[in-house]
């Protein structure tokens, strides 16, 4: 009936028919577009979530692996160094019981004392490597200065540090995290960069806390860092990332504009702003 009307000569039915079809097509098109667009957005969000989940898993694995390595190192130190030392001391003391010659007794007691002193020093070193006493007692600035002084005095590299605005100490656990990150970065520079100097500066700006490391060796750019972070290698870098995540911090690797230095910048939100 409608088609008969279309052919009836009047212009109105024609417009009415095609107008209705066009409007309907437009509306259905709009609805279909909305549904497909939303599905596309959801798919994209799911992919992002998966990527984030994979990244988190990788970081967690890295931190577990690192923790295990640390335990193995401590176990090896205790087993290979402290164990034999204490066993030797025991031998000397045993000999002391068997041998009644006074001179030999004194000598073996002296030897046992020497070994026990070495063992104490060894255990202290292990303990210091776990929690540096300077960091615990005097804070991040002193601990970093101490670390840099040790590097400098080794003669292999010129290391210096300067804290411009660190009047109030952070929470001890946060200081430890930052110190470990700096330690890891320094380790990397010592191992891979072949640099002749490292310079560390600390500063604050608004509610941000910055630590910047400069060195003149071979370094990483942000792209390298992200690439290594996504791959199965670069355990130390993943550890840095997971530690900074705890503090909601960021890390940037870049080459200086002069192309002669590499810069590593750690950016954190100041504790006072976080608590607010």
């Amino acid at each position: 009936m409608i088609f008969l009307q279309i052919n009836s000569g009047s212009n109105v039915p024609m417009v009415l028919f095609f107008g209705t079809i066009a409007m309907l097509a437009l509306t259905i098109g709009l609805i279909v577009f909305i549904i497909f667009h939303q599905r596309k957005v959801i798919r994209f969000q799911m992919q992002l979530q998966k990527l984030e989940y994979d990244q988190q898993k990788m970081l967690l694995n890295a931190s577990i692996k690192l923790q295990e390595e640390e335990r193995q190192r401590i176990a090896a130190d205790l087993h290979d160094d402290a164990g034999p030392l204490l066993a030797t001391a025991r031998l000397y003391l045993n000999e002391n019981l068997v041998n009644l010659d006074r001179q030999t007794q004194l000598q073996s007691i002296y030897n046992a004392k020497q070994i026990i002193d070495d063992t104490i020093q060894l255990i202290r070193n292990i303990s210091h490597s776990l929690m540096p006493p300077t960091l615990k007692n005097f804070g991040l600035e002193s601990a970093v200065n101490d670390l840099f002084q040790k590097i400098s005095s080794s003669g292999s590299m010129n290391a210096s540090s300067r804290f411009h605005d660190y009047r109030e100490r952070m929470q001890p656990e946060n200081e430890l995290i930052i110190f470990r990150v700096i330690q890891e970065l320094i380790n990397n520079i010592l191992k891979h960069s072949n640099a002749s100097f490292i310079h560390l500066t600390q500063n604050t700006n608004n509610n941000k806390f910055f630590i910047r490391l400069h060195h003149d060796g071979r370094g990483l750019t942000q792209a390298d860092f992200e690439k290594l972070n996504k791959s199965s290698v670069g355990l130390g870098l993943k550890n840095i990332q997971s530690r900074l995540r705890v503090l909601h911090g960021k890390i940037f690797f870049e080459k200086d504009i002069s192309q002669t230095y590499f810069k590593v910048t750690i950016e954190l939100i100041k504790e006072s702003s976080v608590s607010q």
């Binding site: 009936m1 409608i2 008969l4 009307q5 109105v12 039915p13 417009v15 009415l16 107008g19 209705t20 409007m23 309907l24 437009l26 509306t27 259905i28 709009l30 609805i31």
Partner: peptide, 28 residues
């Protein structure tokens, strides 16, 4: 929106149609 867009042209031209509700166009 499907109802409004589908019937838009019908109502725009309704004054040109005789006996609106008995018109075959009312099928729309």
């Amino acid at each position: 929106i499907i109802y409004l867009s589908g019937t838009l042209f019908l109502f725009l031209y309704t004054s040109d149609l005789k006996n609106k509700e008995s018109s075959p166009w009312w099928v729309i």
